[in-house]
Each structure stands twice: as structure tokens, then as C-alpha cells.
Amino acid sequence: MPRLLGVDIPGNKKIPYALRYIYGIGPTLADRLVKDAGLDPDVRAHELNEEQLNKISEAIVSEGILVEGDLRREVSANLKRLQAIQSYRGIRHRRGLPVRGQRTQCNARTRKGRRKTISQGKK
């Protein structure tokens, strides 16, 4: 398994697909990085030599793209900031509810978690 920016990428996949295993790199960015590095997109990741891996990592650094730990830190800092200023979005994040205006009356099970049954008590 080749290592790129401290992350093991799968060696049996083509480069654009293998790059997506790095947090912060999606399909479009992966294609652009391979093109900027001047590599053949049909080559498998395990076939890359050190020089080619360095070209890809230089392309990531030169474009100023945040990946892995730096990106995770920035995202968590943004969430903490929203919660600290007690914005609507921050409150929704803290409560574990949908943030972007989705309804919660009948759906939102992914965000709210499993149903919590409430006992009826004595009647």
C-alpha cells in the first residue's frame, strides 16, 4: 500500500479513485490533481514510484488544499465557534438535530438516532 500525506491509499485502485481515500479529496479534485501532476489516470496506485507520489503531494501543497488532520481541526473549530456564539446552527449541532432546515416531525431518524419509547405509566 503506497503512503501519501501520511495516509495509506489502496494500491490495487486507479490513482483518481485511490486519492479519494484521503480526507478532503473528492472525485473532481482527485482528477485535477492527477492531471496537474502529469500522470496517467489509468495507472494503479501500487505502480507509482516515489517521484510520482511526491508530484501528487506537491500538487496538493501548492494549491493550498487542506487535507486530513488540518481539515478535521478546521471543521471542528467551525462547529465549536457556532456553538459558542449560540447561533441557530450551533444549537442544532449541539442537540443532534438536522441543521439545514429539514423537518423533524416525521423523519430525521439518521440525525436523531433510534426511537426512544416513552412509557405510558399508570392509567
Rank of each mutant, 00 (worst) to 15 (best):
M1S: 11
P2I: 02
L4I: 13
G6P: 12
I9Q: 11
N12F: 11
I15M: 09
I15K: 08
Y17T: 12
L19E: 03
L19W: 04
R20F: 05
Y23G: 08
P27N: 14
L29W: 01
L29M: 14
A30T: 05
V34N: 11
V34A: 07
V34I: 12
A37F: 07
G38N: 08
P41R: 13
P41V: 03
V43S: 12
R44S: 07
A45I: 02
N49I: 08
E51S: 12
L53S: 09
K55G: 00
S57N: 05
A59P: 01
A59M: 05
I60R: 07
G64C: 07
D70G: 04
L71H: 01
L71C: 02
R73V: 12
E74P: 00
V75K: 07
N78Y: 02
N78F: 03
N78V: 02
R81Q: 11
R81N: 10
S87G: 15
R89P: 10
G90P: 15
R92V: 04
R95W: 12
G96M: 08
L97H: 08
P98M: 01
Q102N: 09
T104K: 04
N107C: 13
A108P: 10
R109Q: 10
T110C: 02
T110K: 15
R111V: 08
R111H: 04
R115P: 02
I118Y: 10
I118E: 09
S119M: 03
K123S: 14
